[in-house]
Design a protein around this nucleic acid. Structure first.
Lengths: 195, 195
DNA sequence: ACACAACCGGAATCCGAGATTCCACTTAAC
DNA sequence: GTTAAGTGGAATCTCGGATTCCGGTTGTGT
């Protein structure tokens, strides 16, 4: 493979990640090509069909998440703090919000994608461990689980188009509210002014 | 206007409300017609364009909300209880969840719709009063407002397609979590098993 | 019961967004 | 300098959905 071809491949996956985050799994291929600065032809040569491309995006995404979770967990604070850190990392503005997009993926797309499945599973496990740790600490209420956390993350990080504008503009505020709902103790103050 | 025509008109608005809740403001007209049990022709005769129809749906919707809020507020409990009641009413399964759909409406559609604007404004005001009352009671934290409540309601009641399946399946769970995040006191137990 | 205007349903037609193909033109690599 | 890999994007094909139109119905007044 020629050097420039490899370079383009990278640009395409990156662009696809952005566009998918913005417009969902069915975003026009042409948009992706444009964002990547290549022609549609190039896109199709590299990824014969949409699924292949999406799968590549999935791989990329799940790795990013795993790394971020690792970082958060490695911090010195409590498990709860780690969770809070990770959540706000995910909710940071400008961060590609692929979760929702990928969440609706039909299973077929990821079948045989062992790499993706492997990384994701281990990510969930690690996240789950963190949650249990936080619950053991007594800082998180016991009647919620990782799944709840993941779902909420998914909801609040999905693209602006899907969300009421004010929520999209400040997902962190609402995520924080939700986290407060998950503590066993008192609420912490929010960022904004409060309506 | 003939009696059957009037009857159809009602069926159409009702069907439109359902479909819009399910598929958003841009749902195929044909679906609406089918749901209403009429032909597309009939639909177009009554509502020359999509906007007219959507506006009608908006009127209908805002009235429903206003009534529900009244009922909740009229109850004997605390303001906070009233809020909780109203929120769960909105989140009840099967309830048409139009808010998100209508939220993305371009302003033009509702301009000149004085009826809609009037009812909505008064709804918001009443809701706001309730919130302030709850805050005065000390049961609701002071750094959130009606708008937050409305936004969150919007998020969790929007159509399944827009939401991760688990959230769509049990919006009440998440709504409850969010309400807990809004109390000044401790968290209350959730319905489900917890992940 | 009759006449007729208001109504109906839905087939037929029209339209635009986006997928996919194809090939003349570039350019990295040796 | 040669050439095979790589490129962009116009042209074509598809399909979902909007909108129109009209022959057939059905309330309604007499």
């Amino acid at each position: 493979m020629r050097a420039d071809a490899r370079r383009n491949l990278g640009k395409i996956v990156e662009a696809a990640a952005e566009i998918v985050a913005e417009r969902g799994v069915n975003a026009p291929m042409e948009l992706i090509a444009k964002r990547a600065g290549v022609g549609v032809g190039t896109l199709y040569r590299r990824f014969p069909d949409r699924d292949t491309l999406i799968a590549a995006v999935g791989d990329h995404y799940v790795h990013t998440m795993a790394d971020a979770l690792n970082d958060a967990a490695a911090g010195s604070g409590s498990a709860w703090d780690a969770i809070r850190d990770f959540v706000s990392w995910v909710a940071a503005p400008g961060r590609a919000a692929l979760s929702t997009a990928l969440a609706v993926l039909p299973e077929e797309v990821l079948v045989n994608r062992t790499e993706f499945a492997r990384v994701r599973t281990s990510w969930v496990e690690q996240f789950d461990a963190l949650v249990r740790r936080a619950q053991a600490e007594g800082s998180m209420r016991p009647d919620v689980g990782v799944e709840d956390l993941i779902h909420l993350l998914t909801v609040f990080t999905c693209h602006p188009d899907q969300l009421p504008a004010p929520v999209a503009a400040d997902p962190g505020r609402y995520l924080s509210l939700m986290l407060d709902g998950m503590t066993s103790g008192a609420a912490t103050p929010l960022d904004g002014s409060g309506a």
